[in-house]
Design a protein around this nucleic acid. Sequence first.
DNA 1: CTGAAAGCGCTTACAG
DNA 2: CTGAAAGCGCTTACAG
Lengths: 332, 332
Amino acid sequence: MEKDKKKYTIEDIARELGVSKTTVSRALSGKGRIGRETVERVQAFVAERGYRPNVIARGLAQSRTYNLGLVIPMEDTDVSFFKECMGGICEKASEYNYDVIMAIMKEDRLTQLHRLVANHKVDGIILTRATVESGAVRFLKEQGIPFVVIGPSDDLEVMSIDNPNREASRELTALLLMKGLRRLSLIGGNSRHYVTQSRKQGFLDAHRDRGFHADDALIFMEVEDYRKAMWAVNRILLAESDGIVCMDDNISALVLGCLRERGVEVPDRIRLASLYDSHQMEQNLPPVTSLHFDTKELGRNACMEMLRMLGEELLQEPQRLNYQVILRESTK
Amino acid sequence: MEKDKKKYTIEDIARELGVSKTTVSRALSGKGRIGRETVERVQAFVAERGYRPNVIARGLAQSRTYNLGLVIPMEDTDVSFFKECMGGICEKASEYNYDVIMAIMKEDRLTQLHRLVANHKVDGIILTRATVESGAVRFLKEQGIPFVVIGPSDDLEVMSIDNPNREASRELTALLLMKGLRRLSLIGGNSRHYVTQSRKQGFLDAHRDRGFHADDALIFMEVEDYRKAMWAVNRILLAESDGIVCMDDNISALVLGCLRERGVEVPDRIRLASLYDSHQMEQNLPPVTSLHFDTKELGRNACMEMLRMLGEELLQEPQRLNYQVILRESTK
DNA sequence: CTGAAAGCGCTTACAG
DNA sequence: CTGAAAGCGCTTACAG
């Protein structure tokens, strides 16, 4: 059943063609001076014989692996984010004849990452959000391994590929203002995080654009648990805010819970929107208006930046990252 | 910032230690006759220097890659299945110092798989369900590449690692019988599929165990669309069945829809259970009683069988695959 | 434009 | 028990 697995090597090709390995190698890689005719002859022969060079051997000769490591956290709940992202990464990687090796990180343990690096199995590493806070960045810097981060980074030294949070937040906020809302409040988490700042900026941008003034008293940061959320919600209700913008879906869920406890109806009494969508927003009651980002493209872009760092010449520049405002019942 | 990336090679170690590369190699691999003392000396030195052999170079010398390919379909909706599975695979693979390379299959296109194989990048391939029907199996057989399949396989020549469908179906059915249900119906899909047969067997087993007789008139196969489901549901209602067992979650959803259209309440008028759980069952209204399998362990097992095929000596035998019956409102 | 040779970092008969 | 040498399948100065 198994075909003769007589694997062709460059040597076989060279012999059968009556040229040297050097010539075959050059004809296939296109590097070095070589006759057009020879190139064609070799390529035709190789195509017919179905010969494909052994990428691993090539890698060894060039001290490369043509592998990218992708580190993802086992605990991340947003599975579809991760899958889409991976889809984009794999797609791009294969265009450049790279492969991607998975490293799954459990409870911030770096073991898998260490293995990958120690075994010399990858040329570079792509870190996804949430794997960043684990010491992975420090480790990779120390080792001098090229890496990029998908998601926001507070560290300016790292190459971070992220969604256009500021612009998107601005657009969603603008839409709410257009709907006639005038006393929007904003609830966010850790204000030292870069992502928090960008989303806040977008919120402010939208107000400024239309000549409105965002009320500082309606902006709440460091809201990270139910207690804090309830505190913010109470003040928001007292201040007669007409809409709440939450920075992400977790905060959104918290706030929705608070409003329910207080018996406040959404959207009738107050509108609600989220600056991030995790496929769960749709399931909420009521479904929450939110921003949707193109995760697959995010993955593609990250991969391209990684390849660029590795010295690959990009066939095309990364596309601008897109997003959509998805209007749902919570802002009806 | 970057440390001196003076990568240690086996040659450096040999020189500094005043022995030959051969000796170092043997001390590290444990193969070949070599003095206990020498081994210890080398290992200590290597540990101190933080030297780790280049797995790729080793691979080349041994004509292996220490990589496993994992093929998953882009279209599969059950993302958490795939992630858990992958978690199990990566976990086991790394125990044996293998890595796993992703190949994502879009619309049954085998391009990625072809690349992986043509580039000589993997020693074996793990196929997940749904990638099986795509000609991947034929391709791998032709190429003589070792592979295993996660999920049911109708082809006896392929090594398939699957959930214990028969036993699990039997247990769930037994539970329903214990609850006093006496006229259970069964709805399944394509009866040529091996998985369909095992689930049906389990259903029958449970009846036989308790001396009951499963009514053939209540068993419906080849139910693959709404029309067929409605047809089956109508007959089931006419026959005064007191409970419906669906073979998987898709059928479950169809049937639930039919019952709703007919205005039949679950569980009040009729009970419903599913022989497969995809995290979506919980979200149904009402939540549907179903079987839950240990997907991560499934991944581990598949990986171990793959490694065994590659000639690795397993550190421990694969565990029996476990499952749970999750009782939800639909059978209250 | 083409080739012989050294090298990438390992392993493994073979000889001692 | 240990080592010199050939080899895994490529690439790439260097020389012609």
